[in-house]
Amino acid sequence: MNTMVSQKSLLKYIYEVSFAVNDITLYLDTHPEDEEALQYFCKYKTLREKALKEYAHYFGPLTLDSATCSSKWSWGKMKNPWEVE
């Protein structure tokens, strides 16, 4: 049960940091020289990468790039995004 809770909170965290990366990307597309925005991008991009790796390690990969090398193919067993949690 403990694992379930942390999976939920890690996923929520991934939603949050990913949104930050997505939104600042569009801003940087039209404000490429805004240094504060560049730092913001860098910070959240790093947090997102770490969180995706952590998620893949415990619960399976959300992206192929964060998949860990193992003897089992877990990508196809991951919940599809349209399924209810």
Binding site: L11, K12, I14, Y15, S18, F19, N22, P61, L62, T63, L64, D65, M78, K79, N80, P81, W82, E85
Partner: peptide, 9 residues
């Protein structure tokens, strides 16, 4: 690249 989650839950 595909990500197996929605943009918003």
């Amino acid at each position: 690249n595909y990500e197996k989650r929605l943009q918003y839950p």
